[in-house]
Design a protein around this nucleic acid. Sequence first.
RNA 1: GUGGCCAUAGUUCAGUUGGUUAGAACGCCAGGUUGUGGCCCUGGAGGCCGUGGGUUCAAGUCCCACUGGCCACCCCA
Length: 416
Amino acid sequence: MAFKSIRGTKDILPPETARWHYVESVVREVFHRFNYKEIRTPIFEQTALFARSIGELTDIVGKEMYTFTDRSDDSITLRPEGTASVIRAYIQNNLGEAQPLVKVYYIGPMFRQERPQAGRLRQFHQFGAEAIGSLQPEVDAEIIAMTIQIYKELSLAKYALKISSVGCEKCRPHFKEILQNELRKIAAKLSPDSQRRIEENPMRVLDSKDENDATLTAKMPVITDHLCAECARHFESLKKYLTSFHIPYTVDGRLVRGLDYYTKTAFELTSAELGSQDALAGGGRYDLLTQELGGKATPGVGFAAGIERLMMVLEKKGFEPAADIRPALFIASADAESRAWSVATTIDLRSEGIAVEADFLARSLKAQMREADRQQAKFVLVVGQRELGSGRAILKNMKTGEQNEIPLDEIRKQLS
RNA sequence: GUGGCCAUAGUUCAGUUGGUUAGAACGCCAGGUUGUGGCCCUGGAGGCCGUGGGUUCAAGUCCCACUGGCCACCCCA
């Protein structure tokens, strides 16, 4: 084969694009109902934006970014996630000056150079939302409720919501020290991966998939027991809201997010139907990010969800939306002269807003009927010399098989 | 980045201990119906057997490398 798509990238082809249209329309509709407005940022940014927001030491920045130098010798990176760009746009365009709470959402591709596997691609798609400007736990609750609502409206039932608080600049460093001290005591018994993580990211040791590690760390302290008064109050309030929203959740003090910028609330939605990469969506609060990126100190909360993973679950359920593009009418023609008429009429009707298809292969009537069937056309109009002469033709309802002779100039009326 | 499995028509797959013209189903095209879809019947087109090298009289089949896919680790959406 001459050219192939880049490893870890995929073509999304017609029957499947209908599913994407459906999912995107549901997602947009829910966002709009929650009064979030769409923001579209460039898919590439200065490398430093991601390095500073996501964190130099994270895997994403350390080894997964698509980074290159452009012809002006600037370091450019394809966005690995959405929040950094949104906050950059928020600061750059002074969005906070027009209103105190800015609520935006995005849908689009993200890029990470990882080894592809089930539910993991190098170009993948996310939808997500950010609420920038409020410290209130009500906003955290709204974001979570909105996330859940989207999955509900897609008739997805089998997921689990895990929530936690990762603390703030006051309580997290404290806890990190306590945990590291505990972990160092048993370091020798831990897996090599976990030993490395003790210094790099101790919270992740608690999340290890290694059975032995899990046993050894079962009684280790968790952050949710070591929050400062303010973080604890915030977390309690969030839990109350979720309960009042009738949203079931489990508190998982070991929940870790892959990005450094999170403070207080962290949450994750997982699906048991996904295999190893089971996170459907994740998010949390990032009260320090805006000032870290050079803006006025402004709190924020957000989430992001993987569209391909959502598709995997929908496919597993056998979900198949009705074809979103199908002609209202197919004009079948019996000969060259009527074909000319049918093409001209097709263009006319289309300009009037009617979805029409005709024969463009000069095929037999039978083949045209087959084509109309394949396209799931609602009606077929059969025209030939006779019809052009008499001004009346047969209109066939493809679902019922019913045929009626109608005057050609009444075709618009018949279709409406 | 590491590991395991895999790579044959458009698609999903068969292909005996290496042995003549590589098969099926579905899909596609045409005919059965000289102006009518779906079901049925008949016929047809369509394969450098992932790429490169090696072993052999002989390779889709065995060996090696590469590329790609799948799955897992890592990490995450």
